[in-house]
Design a protein around this nucleic acid. Structure first.
Lengths: 126, 126
DNA sequence: GCATGTTGATTACATCTGTAATAGTATGTG
DNA sequence: CACATACTATTACAGATGTAATCAACATGC
C-alpha cells in the first residue's frame, strides 16, 4: 500500500487533475494553495516517483509526470482506513458528525438519498 | 489543533473507553490489538500528556490518566479535515465509495436514512 | 566554445513517529 | 536501614516528512 503524505497529496491532486504535466506545470497548478519553493515541489515529485505513485516520460530536458494510481483508488483506500480507524468501519457515525455540525448541504443530502435508493434497489434484485 | 499519531490514537481509544486508568490498565486494554512493549506504551502516554491530549492525577506511585479531549471532538475534527482534504468537503462522495465497494451494511443504511430524515425535519421547522 | 540558466539528482536538516532501553526516584519488604 | 520493585522521566535511534539548498548535466545565447 503506497503511503502518500499530506504535502505529497497536494502534488498528486494537481497531477490527477491534468496529466501528464511537467514539474513547472505542477508548481503553477499548486497556485496559491501552497507557496512552496520550487525545490520543495521537485523533492515531492521525486519522492512520489520513488514511492511508485507517479511515473514520467522524458520530454527533452524535462519530465512529464503522470499518476500510477487513480484518485478513486486512493480515495477508497484512504476512506476505508480512516473509517476503520476512527469509526470501527461504520460510515454512518461519520455522517452523523457532519450532520451535527450542520455540515450537510442540500445537495449532499440529495446525493445520499440517491445512494441509499440505489443500494436498496441493489439489495432487492439479487 | 492537537495532532495525534496513529499509535497514539490506539492509546487514546483505550482511555476514552474507560477513564481514568493507569498505564497498566492501558497496556491491558490494548490487549492483543497491539503487542507493544510496556515501555512503548509508556512513551506514548508521555507524548500524549506533552501534547495536551491526556491529563493525569497521581495515585500514589502511579498516574491515573484521563482524556483532555473527547472522542467526539476528535472524530469531528478529523472527519472534517479528512473530507476537506480528499473530497473537497463533501461527505456524499465518500459514502458513495463505500457503497461501490459493498461496504454499506443494512444498519449503516438504516442510520443514514434516519439521519436524512432528521435533517429534513430540521430544515422544515426553522 | 563558454558562461548561464534550467532541470532533475543528491544531500541537508529539524521534527515527528514507532519502538524501545536506560536512568532516576519513590516505595514496600525483610 | 538496604535492597529490590515499580513507576515515571530521559535518552536512543532509524525512518518519514516538511522544506529546501547544492550538485551535476545539458541546452542556449552570445
Amino acid at each position: 500500500m503506497i503511503e502518500i503524505s499530506n504535502a505529497e497529496l497536494s502534488v498528486m491532486q494537481v497531477v490527477w487533475q491534468r496529466q501528464p504535466l511537467s514539474a513547472n506545470d505542477v508548481i503553477a497548478g499548486l497556485g496559491d494553495d501552497n507557496d512552496w519553493h520550487e525545490k520543495t515541489v521537485k523533492t515531492l515529485l521525486n519522492r512520489l516517483v520513488s514511492k511508485g505513485a507517479l511515473g514520467f516520460n522524458k520530454d527533452g530536458r524535462a519530465y512529464l509526470y503522470y499518476p500510477l494510481i487513480t484518485e478513486q483508488d486512493y480515495q477508497l483506500q484512504q476512506s476505508r482506513s480512516f473509517v476503520d480507524r476512527l469509526f470501527a468501519g461504520k460510515v454512518a457515525p461519520l455522517v452523523a458528525g457532519f450532520a451535527s455540525q450542520n455540515k450537510l448541504k442540500p445537495d449532499d443530502v440529495q446525493q445520499l438519498k440517491q445512494l441509499i435508493a440505489d443500494w436498496e434497489q441493489e439489495q432487492n434484485h439479487d
